[in-house]
Design a binder for these strands. Structure first.
Lengths: 120, 120
DNA sequence: CCCATAAGTCACCTTTTTGTAACCACTATT
DNA sequence: AATAGTGGTTACAAAAAGGTGACTTATGGG
């Protein structure tokens, strides 16, 4: 059928990007860590509708991809802090641009109820 | 338990953004349409591992969210062309920034085999 | 009359993702 | 002796997403 196969680096990196931060919760986790490190329990509270299991999985993947750093303190009860790596910090402007685009494009349609933050 | 609930617009819009373009194929479809309109069949060829059903679904959702425009020509056999709307075009710089970040961050780790483009 | 074509739809099935609840380790407190 | 606190893990169930192949529509060509 006379086909041609060509590489498209931009497309490939977009595919790669979506594999890395395409998960529903990953951008949110990154954003929550933008202002400093957070413990597992705090992250669980700040993303109200996520389950413990899923949060654990997402954090593990983000760590494997080098976007966040997991620091474990040998205390009892245990304490684990998550923070952004340099790679992760470099992604923040992109997330900000995405957030801005969404605000400008969908502004009033965004349902704030779905993503309130709970603090103590 | 003395909790406080606070709105966080940036976070909310990020959640919203991921609902809209978080699908595995959506950024790729947008990117393919960056240079002009494409027919359904072409889109199907350009994204080799997507199935007809899934492509249909993704296109429908993108259209519902106002990112792409579907133009149907009353011909036999039918012809349908998809193109970016203004909203969609406004997202392109963000996708570009994401692509750039991925290249800079993961450069050589990106598997080009997975996302070659097939043309006639 | 039969086939091909483009852009889907539909029914059915498999795979992946997500949720739920229980459990663990270790120590301090009650 | 029982309980609480933290950061998980595990088994199981439910839901969502994705794949496959047949079918549709209308018409022109052989």
């Amino acid at each position: 059928m006379g086909r041609k196969v060509i590489d498209n680096p931009n497309l490939c990196s977009l595919v790669h990007a979506m594999n890395i931060i395409g998960g529903k919760w990953k951008p949110i986790i990154m954003y929550l860590l933008a202002n400093g490190s957070l413990r597992f329990g705090k992250l669980l509270m700040f993303t109200p509708t996520i389950s413990k299991k899923v949060l654990t999985e997402q954090l593990k993947e983000l760590e494997e991809d080098g976007l966040i750093i997991r620091q474990k303190f040998p205390e009892i009860p245990p304490r684990v802090e998550y923070s952004l790596s340099e790679k992760g910090k470099a992604l923040l402007p992109v997330l900000k641009a995405l957030s801005d685009w969404t605000m400008e494009t969908y502004g009033n349609e965004i349902g704030f109820e779905q993503c309130r933050i709970v603090t103590l």
